[in-house]
């Protein structure tokens, strides 16, 4: 493996049209090949914006995003993304949903079939391949969405709060499965979440972002060996640490806003 990182984000920032403040201040970080990185931060701090820029769905105002050594100018090229609401195509069966990206890339039919079956096996959805999304539970839909990304054999897997719409139990199960899948397939992952324990459990590195406007305020390296256990005391301790830090950030933020309001009132 080359020592070139999977992802290199340099001073990427974004202000949306018709918006007064920046969604994301210049942000830099790297993701090594096969590394699992989480982005955690309060709502509206620009996590989805950052992920969208990495996915190539959104262009940064300035700064650069490099994937596998090449500047990102659009979607594709070894990157796949999983959205919070699964975003499955409702008119296609699970099988055809997972097959979609392969069809877009003109992969021959026989190979498509094999890869789709593999991907469905990875997320344990073989038995519902012919069902339509509306016939699935929320957890199954999210698995299908993960399979749809995995089938592309991405070197970089982007996940935007993939489990946040699920109940606690399903969520725990899927976290375990994701850990297993990641160990088996070893993509670099950028994982967005609000859930600190989830971030700590899954990641090699966690970046804490602050809001209004967003930027990385602290980075945690987690070198607990895998497979990990969610109840590991070391993880709980980490979570505490991050929580304190986040609280401080939110307080800071409230204070800063209050000050700004006072200034503008003068």
């Amino acid at each position: 493996m080359s020592d070139q990182p999977a992802l290199r984000v340099v001073d990427a920032c974004k202000t949306y049209e018709r918006s007064e403040h920046a969604a994301l201040l210049p942000t830099s970080f790297e993701v090594a090949r096969g590394e699992f990185v989480s982005l955690v931060g309060p709502s509206g701090c620009g996590k989805s914006t950052l992920l969208g820029m990495i996915a190539g769905l959104l262009a940064p105002d300035s700064g650069t995003v490099e994937a596998l050594g090449k500047p990102v100018t659009g979607p594709g090229e070894g990157r796949a993304i999983v959205f919070q609401d699964a975003a499955l195509f409702p008119w296609l069966s699970v099988f055809h949903n997972v097959e979609y990206g392969l069809r877009a890339h003109k992969v021959p039919k026989a190979e498509r079939r094999e890869r789709v079956e593999n991907a469905l096996g990875l997320v344990r959805l073989d038995h519902v391949a012919d069902k339509h999304p509306y016939e699935l539970s929320g957890g199954m839909r999210q698995r299908a969405s993960i399979a749809r990304a995995l089938v592309m054999q991405p070197e970089i897997l982007l996940m935007d709060e993939p489990f946040s719409a699920l109940d606690a139990q399903t969520r725990t199960i899927l976290q375990d499965e994701l850990q297993r899948i990641w160990i088996e397939t070893q993509p670099a992952v950028v994982f967005v979440t609000h859930n600190l324990i989830e971030a700590a459990f899954l990641s090699d590195t966690v970046h804490l972002l602050s809001s209004g406007p967003g930027r990385i305020v602290k980075t945690y390296d987690i070198d607990i060996t895998r497979p990990r256990d969610e109840a590991d005391p070391a993880l709980l301790e980490l979570r505490h640490d991050m929580l304190d830090r986040l609280r401080a950030e939110v307080d800071d933020d409230v204070e800063r806003r209050a000050q700004a309001a006072e200034v503008s009132a003068l």
């Binding site: 769905l57 979607p75 594709g76 975003a87 195509f89 877009a104």
Partner: peptide, 12 residues
């Protein structure tokens, strides 16, 4: 999101 999903999967 559906459009983005399609785009991200390489549809154009």
């Amino acid at each position: 999101t559906l459009l983005m999903a399609g785009e991200a999967l390489g549809a154009k």
